[in-house]
Amino acid sequence: MFRIARNLYREGVLGINRRNAEYTLRYNERRLYPLVDDKVHTKKIAIAAGLAVPELYGVIETPYQIRTLDAVLESHPDFALKPSRGSGGNGILVISGRSKNLYRKISGILMTRDELKYHASNILSGMYSLGGHPDRAMIEYRVRFDPVFEAISYQGVPDIRIIVFLGVPVMSMVRLPTRKSDGRANLHQGAIGAGIDIGTGITLTAVSGNEIVTEHPDTGNKITGVKIPKWDTLLKLAAQCYELTGLGYVGVDIVLDKFKGPLILELNARPGLNIQIANRAGLLPRLKLIEQLQNRTNSIEERVSYAKKHFATDQISRIEKI
């Protein structure tokens, strides 16, 4: 047991306790949390800062406003209905089109308008929010993911998670929905996580649960070695979230839209640790390297190139020797 702990420490694996005590509690000020816990809020500051996000069609704040849903939906044939303060991808409803009066979910199942409104009222009552607090429902642009992911995801939208520490992207993975995860990009629910080489944007190993996989279980296509397009834009977008929120240790979730390119979906002030399993590498050496930096307030471009230089896969073995 102690041997495993020693090995993990040598590999630089970050545990929950250390993440909380030495990173989130130290670098993320409590007062900044609302910026990222509420997605409507995040979206507003991102738009103000000129960062790309999926377009917001409308926000429902009170049960009375649910009836205004009709008007919003008239102009948009497809959309995503989400809780503003949801967690773990729960409560997200994606409508891909309609058939007469019915709405078609991405899985192909049809919903009536009443069912849609019921879902909205569930969101308002706090069913999907942390701690069950009353929430807002947001209706936004449905992301049409980039064709690069078509072969390696099952329904749902794959998203790219980048951990940004003090403005430097340190580790990244793409989360691919599977049949098991019911189209959701949540690793706990069975989605596949594939590490991405920061230097090149090419996928590395992939894990399903704790097992290493090389092919997508539903499509049978190879997951590793896929080049993520517009990788530099993605890294830059992620790095900018440091200035946007002031959070030192933040997980940035980005989707790659077919038409609009990388869009920020949400930010997370307590990003999960599974990214280490997907990358088969620990976070600690990279975080420590950045902590030792003298000049932290570099420009965004400098930070991105620093990350590409130091955290590229062929460089990582060098760091770990330090």
């Binding site: 047991m1 993990l8 306790n17 250390r18 005590a21 590498a281």
Partner: peptide
């Protein structure tokens, strides 16, 4: 204990894959 930053016992199993490398 509020400043304990070591691994949790269950994490040893969670990250076991990484310790074998």
């Amino acid at each position: 204990m509020g400043r304990y930053s070591g691994y949790r016992l269950f994490e040893l199993r969670r990250f076991k894959e990484l310790s074998r490398k």
